[in-house]
């Protein structure tokens, strides 16, 4: 559990690493670097370049995207879904992270297990679980019909709400772990000091714990938001064609319509917007560190 929390923390919060010599450093990272260049960077550049180079230098593929409102609807839906999933994961995840950081012994282990175990289960499985709940003959429909609330099964699956629920559940650990890490990093005497200086329990949370956990909240929010933009399996299976998101659209362009340049143009747009968000967030976080929240 802590391995993942640690790597997340190390990614977002500066941790001074042990110093190795330059030669050793390069030797150690060379194999991965070669693999990344050959199997990741090169294909991506090659693929994305299709959007402006196929068949000859052109902006036609981008122009086509700007012309089709259908694409814009999907792009908008993707970002709306990302935003809603992020907010939901934050609202549900923060209390869990707080609990995890503040209980000890068996309870802490139990909560950690509940948070971490789903990460070991395939996303496909976690997605299909929602059919058991939301399907035509799923638990909720059966219960609602059994209780006489409805007499026809409701359409719960293949809705955007179902996509939000499933994605929130799947991404929840990604929100919880960075928040947990930042809560654990708060020295316990700060809470005591605040209380000793006259703050109520609620005051301690509002004025000390919450502001100091914001870096974790930001890290979790960025991770969940960006991961949700690229979600493919869950929106495709649970959302169906009517709640299509951009990853599904790109796949369809490439595999169904064999329009690789168009898929590349869509990918470029998704990547540019994602990068922009990351940069803006990083900038905001750094500013925050310099000026302090001072709330």
């Amino acid at each position: 559990m802590s391995a993942r929390a640690d790597s997340v923390r190390r990614y977002f919060f500066a941790v001074t690493a042990q110093q190795y010599s330059r030669a050793l450093t390069w030797t150690l990272i060379a194999p991965l670097l070669v693999l990344l260049l050959a199997a990741f960077v090169w294909p991506i550049v090659k693929f994305l370049s299709l959007s402006v180079l196929d068949p000859s230098p052109t902006l036609a593929h981008f122009a086509e995207i700007f012309d089709r409102t259908f694409y814009w609807t999907i792009l908008l839906r993707t970002f709306r879904t990302g935003l809603i999933v992020t907010v939901m994961a934050l609202l549900l995840g923060y209390p869990v992270a707080y609990l995890m950081a503040n209980v000890r012994g068996l309870w802490a282990a139990a909560i950690a297990a509940i948070v971490i175990l789903p990460l070991w289960i395939s996303i496909l499985v976690r997605t299909f679980v929602w059919f058991i709940f939301l399907g035509r003959t799923g638990l909720i429909n059966k219960a609602a019909m059994g209780l006489g609330i409805v007499d026809q099964p409701m359409r719960l699956i293949n809705t955007e709400v179902a996509v939000w629920l499933a994605m929130t559940q799947i991404l929840l650990p990604v929100m919880i772990l960075p928040i947990y890490a930042s809560l654990r990093a708060i020295p316990p005497e700060l809470g005591k000091a605040a209380e000793g200086l006259g703050a109520s329990k609620a005051g301690v949370f509002r004025h000390v714990i919450l502001p100091l956990s914001l870096p974790g909240v930001a890290a979790g929010a960025v991770l969940v938001f960006i991961m949700s933009l690229g979600f493919f399996i869950t929106p495709m299976l649970i959302g169906g064609p009517r709640s299509m998101m951009i990853a599904t659209l790109i796949t369809e362009q490439a595999t169904k319509f064999l329009d690789w340049p168009e898929a590349a143009a869509l990918s470029t747009i998704l990547m540019v917007i994602t990068l922009a968000i990351v940069i803006v967030f990083n900038r905001a976080l750094r500013l925050d560190r310099v000026m302090g929240s001072g709330a």
């Binding site: 020295p187 100091l212 302090g292």
Partner: peptide
């Protein structure tokens, strides 16, 4: 009034 060994100043405040 309370003073702790590790000062316990709030790092997010001036």
């Amino acid at each position: 009034g309370m003073v702790f060994q590790r000062y316990a100043l709030f790092p997010h405040m001036t």
